[in-house]
Amino acid sequence: MKLGFLVDLNLCMGCKGCEIACKVENEVPLASWRLKVKYVDIGVFPDTSRSFTPMRCNHCEDAPCEKICPVSALHYLPNGIVNIDSSRCIGCAGCIMACPYDAIYMNPETNTADKCTYCAHRVEGGMMPACVVACPVEANIFGDIDNKDSHISRYIMEHQGGVQVRKPEKHTNPKHYYVGGGNQTLNPLAHQRIEGYSLFTNITHLDTVGDPNHSMLDRFLTPIFGHDHLDNTGFAGMESNKKDSNKGEH
């Protein structure tokens, strides 16, 4: 058995239902994401279109995150899922450096790495991942790609030639496929990402990953110097991002 995902971008309407379902199901903290839906605007007015691309961990068959993890916190399940055992994670961030798809975040509450697990806990109980259930247009298709009769296998066969993965050149052998995507949507270097307030939100980056006051140094220094009050906006550096967002440095 090898579980895989396919998103038909022709069907996706960018409602972010999957993103929210994922957050709720997996209690993903603010300023962290296991699954995101990215909007890219393409073309020149009046000939423009907006694309919506859900992105999550690709559960790569040759996962660099699994290889680099020094303590096997990231590991394969027999069904092909790249799972994470956060109780073992030492928080070295090696996996964040290794994943070519930016699919891993440092959980600011636990200070351990975390990512999409294809809802391994639900799958184990015979349920579909939360994002699949939430999608109103059935753009997310999940199943066993080893089984040629599964919905996902048949979908792949029916769309031969039009099925893509992200960054195939990285030789990670992703088990997450897209139908209907183009270079503009799937390649992060093929579109501009201008930092600052845009149409909907502030396009930015995190100043720190995880809790900024996580280190041993802080444990020693905090009793002497104290540190900023932690709240849902502060811990991920979002407040300071507000000040910096228009610098456009990154």
Partner: peptide, 9 residues
């Protein structure tokens, strides 16, 4: 092509 909506990276 330009990003119009994205999470903080």
């Amino acid at each position: 092509a330009v990003v119009s909506f994205d999470v903080a990276l």
